[in-house]
Amino acid sequence: MTRQLIAYVHVDGVPYGPDDKVPAKIAERIGAHAWTNGDEQVEVSTPTGGGDGLKSEAPPRTGRGSGIEAWLAFAEQHDVGTDSDMTRDDVIAACEAAGVIEPDQPKE
């Protein structure tokens, strides 16, 4: 019996999906609710940057989980071009420019 993810999850900013082989050390960190035993048919929506597919949620802009790795993985999922010279803020700006996320609104 093999376990299979029922949806996409991010661990340390790295996305894992139903068709991915998840390393044992990573699998230990994913809750039981995210797995199926592989015998059941699972309907999975692949995150995409447009169309009728589901978009994965953007990482937070500040605080835990807001690092450049998370933003690079998010940008890659949504086909937003990045390069090695970009900072986290550059990646966020590129996602905004591509229309993948809304521009950050200053708090009043």
Rank of each mutant, 00 (worst) to 15 (best):
E108C: 00
A75M: 03
G50Y: 01
M1I: 06
G53C: 10
V80L: 08
Y16V: 12
V100F: 02
G67I: 00
A58C: 05
S45G: 14
D85Q: 09
F74A: 07
Y16A: 03
Y16T: 12
T36C: 11
E96W: 00
E96A: 08
T2S: 12
A93K: 12
T2R: 11
D104T: 13
A93T: 13
T82F: 01
G49D: 11
I6A: 08
A93Q: 15
P47M: 05
E96Q: 14
S66N: 15
Y16G: 09
D104I: 10
A75W: 04
Q105V: 15
Q4R: 15
W35Q: 03
I101N: 14
S84G: 12
T87M: 11
G53I: 00
G17P: 07
G38I: 05
G63Y: 04
T82D: 05
E40A: 15
Y16P: 10
Q77N: 12
Q41W: 03
P47K: 02
D12W: 00
H10C: 13
V22L: 06
T62G: 03
T87F: 02
P60W: 04
D89K: 06
T82S: 09
E96R: 02
Q105H: 04
E69P: 00
I30V: 08
A24I: 09
T87L: 10
I30D: 04
G17S: 14
L5A: 08
S45P: 03
A94K: 11
L54Q: 14
G13M: 04
V42T: 14
C95E: 11
A27I: 03
G38A: 07
C95M: 10
K21E: 15
V80H: 07
V22M: 07
H33Y: 01
I30Y: 02
H10Y: 13
V9P: 00
I101H: 08
W35H: 05
A34G: 00
K25L: 04
I6Q: 10
I101L: 09
V100T: 15
D52Q: 07
P103C: 06
G17I: 05
R88N: 09
K25D: 15
T2C: 05
V9R: 00
A70K: 01
K25S: 14
I26T: 15
F74L: 02
A73Q: 06
H78Y: 04
E69I: 12
V11A: 10
C95Y: 06
I68M: 06
L72V: 06
D79N: 13
E102K: 12
G50L: 01
V100D: 13
Q105N: 08
E96S: 04
T62L: 07
T2W: 02
G53V: 01
L54T: 14
Y16N: 10
P18F: 01
L54M: 12
A27Y: 01
D19W: 06
Q4A: 08
Q105S: 13
G99A: 07
P23G: 09
H78L: 11
E96I: 14
E57F: 03
V44P: 02
W71C: 10
V100I: 15
A7W: 06
P23W: 03
A34I: 00
K21I: 15
C95W: 02
C95R: 09
I26V: 15
N37P: 00
H33G: 02
Q105T: 14
